[in-house]
Structure formats: structure tokens, C-alpha cells
């Protein structure tokens, strides 16, 4: 079964966030870019499902030409082909992204490449829309499971496990289907040197969307106010233990 995995290039912010001058984007000039942990796991699952079913994994992104970096990273860990839907990312909202991906899925199907499974991350690390996978499923008229830790092909259906504190909910859905992935079910592999070399040679299919985007509704970004530090230091090292236990007693957690 052929698998399509959709990823997003996002700012790799860990410390403080900076915004662009027009407050419409995160200023990522000093932090670099990555794909989210959910999507790293989606790539791994795409490669595993494709291998187990004698199919191929294709990676796709909707972004600017710099997003080729993230496509090459996915090619280096086992995807066989890559598609860049080249857009100006800030003009594209979740509805637009889903529509653009759906158009490519249909085009590839018309050319004889049908994806039994389309994987995405559960939510983008930057915009956190929590809906692109579901919108894509509706565009394509396919069933969808969100937040899966693992997914396996079982004949004409898929089995996806969604982990929750009370246990794992096991979903079944007929193929073709869309599944969004949450981190935790698989360990993403590291690229090998030959994997990197091979990734460099893959010709990336570049597509320009036919439809005009409707946008995301973003008015602007702003940063929540950072309250001044009010930390009360109880002490240093092991000597602080009595002061710490005094506090835990006052808070009612040590009795």
C-alpha cells in the first residue's frame, strides 16, 4: 500500500518567542526550523506501513521553497518520493492546506498512484489548528482517525491505537483512510549517511495550487505578558531540604 505523509516546516522555538515586525509571523531568523515530534512519528509510521505492505512512502509539504530541507530529511529516513506544494505559507489557512493536499492526492490517483493511507501530524506545532487532517478526509470523502500513536494495515482496513490515560482506544477504518499521528507510539529513526546521499538525488515534484486560498482568519499574533520573576529561593543544595519540606507542609502535600 502506498502511503502519503504530510509534514510542515515550523520554527524550532525553545526559548523566548520573537514576532516579525508586522506581528503576523514568528520571527525564526535566529532559531531555525524543524518538523514537529508528531510528524517525525508520522514519517516513521509511513515508512513502516509502506514496508509492511510492499508499498512506497511519499512525503509532502505545503510551504515555500525552503521547506525542501524538511522533505530531504524525510527522504533520508525512508520516504521514496517528495512533493512540494509551493505557496506563501502565511496566506494559507487550514482549509486551504487541506484543499491543496486533496488536489495532489486526486492528481496522483489519476496518474495511477493511489494512497491507501494519508498520514499527518495531529496538530501543527506553530499554528495548532487541530483540523487539517479532518478537513483533508472530508475533501477526499475518506474516514479519519485523529491522534493515533500507531497505525497498521490489516487487509482492507487499518487499525489505529489512540492512547489515553484510561487506556488505548483501538480504532478500525476501511482503506483508503486518513490518520493523524501523536508522538509516542514509535521511535523515529535517524538518517544514515547513505540515506542522506540518496535523499540528495531525489527529484522533488513541485506543484502550484490551482485554487486561491481563503486564508486563516489571522488578525495578528501577540505574546502573552511575561510577569516579572517572583521566585522565592528556599536555599541551596541539600541544606535547603528542611525549608522545602516546611513549604510542602504549608501547601498541605506533606502531612
Amino acid at each position: 500500500m502506498d502511503v502519503l505523509v504530510c509534514i510542515k516546516r515550523v520554527p524550532d522555538v525553545a526559548g523566548s518567542v520573537a514576532l516579525t515586525e508586522d506581528s503576523m509571523d514568528v520571527d525564526a531568523r535566529h532559531v531555525g526550523y524543524a518538523v514537529s515530534p508528531h510528524e517525525e512519528c508520522a514519517i516513521e509510521l509511513a515508512v513502516q506501513v509502506a514496508k509492511a505492505t510492499d508499498g512506497a512512502a511519499t512525503v509532502l509539504t505545503v510551504g515555500d521553497e525552503d521547506a525542501v530541507e524538511q522533505l530531504r530529511d524525510a527522504l533520508a529516513v525512508g520516504c521514496g518520493a517528495a512533493v512540494l506544494i509551493e505557496v506563501e505559507p502565511r496566506r494559507y489557512g487550514p482549509t486551504d492546506v487541506a484543499a491543496a493536499i486533496a488536489d495532489v492526492v486526486r492528481d496522483h490517483e489519476a496518474q495511477g498512484r493511489s494512497y491507501g493511507l494519508v498520514l499527518l501530524g495531529n496538530d501543527a506545532a506553530d499554528t495548532g489548528d487541530f483540523q487539517v487532517g479532518v478537513r483533508l478526509a472530508y475533501e477526499l470523502g475518506r474516514p479519519v482517525v485523529t491522534g493515533a500513536a500507531t497505525v497498521e494495515a490489516a487487509g482492507e482496513s487499518l487499525v489505529a491505537r489512540v492512547e489515553a490515560p484510561e487506556g488505548a482506544a483501538v480504532f478500525e477504518a476501511p482503506v483508503p483512510a486518513v490518520v493523524t499521528v501523536m508522538e509516542g507510539g514509535v521511535e523515529p529513526r535517524y538518517p544514515s549517511i547513505p540515506g542522506r546521499m540518496k535523499a540528495k538525488r531525489v527529484q522533488i515534484e513541485t506543484v502550484t495550487p490551482a485554487r486561491e486560498p481563503v486564508g486563516s482568519g489571522r488578525v495578528r499574533l501577540h505574546l502573552p505578558p511575561v510577569p516579572p520573576s517572583q521566585v522565592e529561593v528556599l536555599g541551596k543544595g541539600a541544606e535547603a531540604a528542611p525549608a522545602m519540606v516546611d513549604l510542602l507542609e504549608r501547601l498541605g502535600v506533606v502531612r
Binding site: 522555538v13 506545532a125 488578525v219 499574533l221 505574546l223 502573552p224
Partner: peptide, 12 residues
């Protein structure tokens, strides 16, 4: 909340 709550987006 966007960026896991590190920033907020005003959205129409």
C-alpha cells in the same frame, strides 16, 4: 493559543 500557548493569535 498557538505555539503551545507561547503566543496568542487573534483570529476572525
Amino acid at each position: 493559543q498557538v505555539l503551545g500557548g507561547a503566543a496568542l493569535e487573534e483570529m476572525r
